[in-house]
Design a protein around this nucleic acid. Structure first.
Length: 462
RNA sequence: GGCCUCGUGGCGGAGUGGCUACGCAGAGGACUGCAAAUCCUUGUACUCCGGUUCGAAUCCGGACGAGGCCUCCA
């Protein structure tokens, strides 16, 4: 008997038992990247968090009974600006950025979503939604634009819990003259000749920011679905406006039943920003030594991310990555990689922890417990499930050969000769000579281990 | 100004009314010629002030502090 999944719902600000609309097809939508630049480490958080949720849902409801949609937004004014700046076409920019993004998420151990729809392939659905909104009196065309009429929706502001009055009081932006209400937002806008555009009933134009998610979730998940996820900064205005568009277009009370939002990320105690120089992309962490003077395996980034509950703010530090790596190394030393018993159950302690609103910190604690109590097969299963198992990289044998791989044959011979000399000295109980050789090797970065069986193994110190 | 989070031991980080996780670092021990690695044991905490309660880190009120959103930034 599976435990009940409980998730914190931003809509109600409480932890609720999860009940899918259709257990035969649990449906989840997560806001994906706008492909104008490489994804940064803050972008990695929702990717990892909702991947864990996807894995859990598949475990609870069956692999064939979960549909996970994560979009690619490939039409946006930031894209246009960046392409112009770099002197390449929009298509070149979005293709290149998407390619890197796909490599990044894979390295982070994320399963591919069931569908990764692209905004540019859903223009027809966007137009259809806009037409419905106009027909039902929730939108109006003005000056080449189509705008959503916010006051036409009494429930507007439900998700972010702000009233129209509050927002007006805090407004500090100029209101475009063609807007009826100052909170009305753009569904469609006209494109100049040099801007990407599509023919529409309102002339050649392009979609506003929020409409693509309403269109893609509708196409792939239906008018209403179970879970909608994203970063907490998307609550307002993005998700609030998605709700307005979808609920009014389809005359539904809700767009998604459960809204989940991950907390923000800081880098070494400071907000990540280009001006502070602490802006770091996933690609840089994986492939360069920009952060902490070395590159980091995706599994380390993933585990470091999961140490903190997804709704808490997280401070991204070198120390946290080092600790995550130390944990992974220790676990891989003890996991039973040879077990091929697929019937091995995922330990209940892991499932139970995840069912408590994705308590991944508790999961990690339970993995430590499995490790300590010597449950090597359950340990492997848990690591695999969490997406941090990498035998080729973290197993003891792999590490030794990997680190030695770069050395010249000459150096290797030298090291082995010294070790043999030391073994001879030890056999003769010449401790002074033995320690001298060990120090000499240490100076070369070689760490010796005299194992119980009398053999001496060595590793390179990082 | 409005709305919303959050304040736990040296550090990271769970926990939502009684039983004081877990990891890293530290300390002690085992093993070792000595080490390293490994294993075992272990100390230290709930921002402050009121209130509710037999009992509060956990609930309520207030203060102070930190962060986020209200500007197409996850």
């Amino acid at each position: 008997m599976s435990p009940t999944l409980k998730i914190y719902n931003t809509l109600t600000r409480t932890k609720e038992a999860f009940t899918p609309l259709d257990p035969a097809q649990v449906r989840m939508y997560v806001c994906g990247p706008t492909v104008y630049d490489y994804a940064h480490i803050g972008n990695a958080r929702p990717l990892i968090v909702f991947d864990v949720l996807y894995r859990l849902l598949r475990h609870l409801y069956g692999v064939a009974h979960v549909k996970y949609v994560r979009n690619i937004t490939d039409v946006d004014d930031k894209i246009n600006a960046r392409a112009a700046e770099r002197g390449i076409t929009i298509r070149e920019l979005t293709e290149e950025t998407n390619r890197v993004f796909q490599n990044d998420v894979q390295a982070l151990g994320c399963l591919a979503p069931d569908v990764q729809p692209r905004a540019t392939e859903h223009i027809a659905q966007m137009i259809a939604i806009i037409e419905r909104l106009i027909a039902s009196g929730h939108a109006y065309a003005a000056d080449g634009h189509v705008l959503f009429d916010v006051p036409s929706m009494p429930a507007y502001g439900q998700l972010s819990r702000r009233s129209l009055e509050d927002m007006r009081a805090g407004a500090r932006v100029d209101v475009a003259p063609y807007k009826r209400g100052d909170m009305d937002f753009v569904l469609w806008k006209p494109s100049a000749a040099n801007e990407p555009g599509w023919e529409s009933p309102w002339g050649r134009g392009r979609p506003g920011w929020h409409i693509e998610c309403s269109a893609m979730s509708w196409e792939h998940l239906g008018e209403t679905f179970d879970i909608h996820g994203g970063g907490i900064d998307l609550v307002f205005p993005h998700h609030e406006n998605e709700i307005a568009q979808s609920c009014c277009a389809f005359d539904q009370r809700v767009m998604a039943n459960y809204w989940m939002h991950n907390g923000f990320l800081q880098v070494e105690g400071e907000k990540m920003s280009k001006s502070l120089g602490n802006f770091v992309t996933i690609h840089e962490l994986l492939c360069t030594d920009k952060f902490g003077g070395r590159s980091w395996p995706g599994e380390v980034l993933r585990l470091a991310m999961l140490r903190t509950h997804y709704r808490q703010p997280i401070d991204w530090t070198v120390k946290a990555l080092e600790e995550a790596e130390a944990n992974l190394l220790a676990w891989h030393d003890h996991a039973d990689f040879d077990s091929v018993d697929e019937s091995e159950e995922l330990p209940a302690s892991i499932v139970n922890a995840l069912c408590e609103d994705l308590n991944t910190a508790e999961v990690i604690s339970q993995i430590h417990a499995l490790n300590k109590s010597g449950q090597a097969r359950a340990l492997k299963k848990a690591l695999q499930f969490l997406g941090v198992l990498n035998i080729e990289k973290f197993s003891r044998a792999a590490r030794a050969s990997d680190l030695q791989h770069d050395l010249s044959a000459e150096t290797k011979t030298q090291i082995e000769t010294l070790i043999a000399d030391r073994l001879a000295a030890r056999a003769a109980k010449n401790w002074a000579e033995s320690d001298r050789i060990r120090d000499e090797l240490a100076a070369m970065g070689v760490v010796l281990k005299d194992n119980k069986d009398g053999a001496t193994t060595w590793e390179l110190k990082r």
